[in-house]
């Protein structure tokens, strides 16, 4: 079991959270080619790395953003999603 240190709730079990995928900036629907759109929807570099991810805390219904390494599983940062999301994510 992993534990997460939440900015306001303190130490919580990771099992309270649901994984919501990595944070990815959506491609502009207007100016996108077919290939670019398909790449946005389907293709990515899935190699191990530290990435920003969506995690949903079910008991409170709040989305968080974790900075997590997909090789070591270490979580280095936890933010409220509505504060932590930058537009250039």
């Amino acid at each position: 079991m992993k534990f997460v240190t939440c900015p306001s709730l303190g130490r919580r079990a990771l099992s309270e959270f649901t994984f919501g995928g990595r944070v990815e900036k959506e491609t502009d629907q207007e100016a996108v080619s077919e290939r670019e759109w398909a790449e946005y929807v389907f293709y990515h570099n899935g190699a191990p790395k530290t990435q920003q991810e969506w995690w949903y805390h079910r008991p409170t219904g709040i989305w968080f953003l974790f900075q997590r390494n997909t090789l070591t599983d270490s979580i280095t940062q936890v933010d409220f999603a509505n504060k932590g999301l930058t537009n250039d994510a």
């Binding site: 649901t18 919501g20 969506w54 949903y56 219904g61 989305w63 999603a81 509505n82 999301l85």
Partner: peptide, 11 residues
């Protein structure tokens, strides 16, 4: 659906 919509609101 609720979870996804909340996420989209933030995004």
């Amino acid at each position: 659906a609720y979870r996804m919509i909340q996420k989209k609101v933030i995004e």
